[in-house]
Write a protein that binds this DNA or RNA. Structure first.
Length: 319
DNA sequence: AATAATGACAACCGCAGCTAT
DNA sequence: CATAGCTGCGGTTGTCATTAT
């Protein structure tokens, strides 16, 4: 009785997107704003389902996305957050402003998982000699075991409870500026998440200034809307379409510095603002609020292996 | 050089939650 | 309240590139 899949229609194209399709999609979104994905294929003539359009935009074309070259700090954050949150990639991505959940998920699956397995193998071999007397059941050698033991739903519930607690603490202590964790319930929609992480001050336009620049760069020959002359990063990414437009690779945008750049935020163009609703929830508002988390993540970077064994009770202590 | 195996990543699929009617 | 439609999420697959044999 359910709704038929949106991609089952005849004539709906699948597979990799072409540069031409990307340009059509980006230019349409630039004119109409993201959202209302159902109308995108009909209005653009793209032979894609709405879902595919949305995915392409959010994971690839959306401004402000950094791709590839995960830094060590990002790696550590992902590892920590995965240990804490489980495979809630969207939640994890909300802490990594320029990364998409899909990217993080892929990176985890292809790199970090193996890396950690290797680490655990090594540490197991070392500890095995010291703890041979340890009973099998108590020897928590991997996150998966812990997860299996506790149940992922329980972990998720715990996390949400912790975050709710955090919200309460925050609400009760107005001068506690160090605790500004974005509170991202799994039940929140994007706008809720955005609201939840929005500091009171006005800096929400910062990323969109960059967005305008990115879009203008994306469509140099297609759109004539570029009013500003953004500082173009002359270094094209290694990927992209051969000798065609370079899309989605914004190596230029330095979020951390842009964040506090009020000039940039003031220069946001009207058309830029239409991207605000669809930008990554909270990404342009989170960095200062990350202080608490960052301190924890980076200060304890050396203990990344230990965290993988962290029980829920230990999580309680953390909070 | 040819082929198989493996890795990396983009994209798809199915489901759940939310909203409007 | 029930239903349909839309969106977002996470698991999984498909495809291309690279490496090994």
């Amino acid at each position: 009785m359910g709704r038929p899949p949106c991609c089952d229609k005849i004539g709906v194209k699948k597979g990799p997107w072409t540069p031409e399709e990307d340009i059509i999609l980006v230019s349409f979104i630039q004119q109409n704003g993201p959202g209302n994905w159902r109308s995108v294929p009909t209005n653009t003539g793209l032979l894609r389902c709405s879902k595919s359009c949305r995915l392409r935009w959010t994971n690839y074309l959306r401004p402000g996305i950094k791709r590839g070259n995960f830094t060590e700090q990002e790696e550590k954050m992902i590892i920590h957050l995965q240990a804490l949150l489980g495979n809630r990639w969207a939640a994890i991505a909300s802490y990594l402003p320029q990364r998409t959940d899909n990217d993080i998920k892929n990176y985890w699956n292809t790199h970090l998982k193996k890396k950690l397995e290797k680490l655990h193998e090594e540490s197991d071999q070392e500890t095995h000699h010291h703890h041979q007397a340890t009973s099998k059941g108590c020897h928590s050698s991997s996150l998966s075991e812990t997860t299996m033991y506790k149940g992922q739903w329980e972990r998720r519930l715990q996390t949400d409870i912790h975050m709710a607690k955090q919200a309460l603490c925050e609400a009760l202590s107005l001068d506690n500026k160090s605790i500004n964790l974005p509170l991202l319930s799994s039940n929140m929609n994007s706008s809720d998440k955005l609201q939840s992480v929005l500091p009171l001050s006005n800096q929400s336009t910062t990323t969109y200034a960059s967005s305008a620049e990115n879009i203008a760069r994306l469509l140099p020959d297609w759109m004539k809307c570029s009013k500003k002359s953004p500082e173009i990063n002359p270094s094209p990414p290694s990927e992209g379409y051969d000798n065609s437009v370079q899309i989605g690779y914004n190596n230029n945008m330095n979020y951390y510095s842009n964040y506090s750049n009020s000039d940039v935020s003031q220069s946001v163009s009207p058309e830029t603002s239409m991207f605000q609703d669809e930008s990554k929830p909270g990404m342009e508002n989170q960095m200062p609020p990350l202080t608490f988390l960052e301190n924890w993540l980076f200060d304890e970077a050396s203990t990344q292996g230990d965290l993988m064994n962290m029980s829920l009770e230990e999580s309680d202590d953390f909070y």
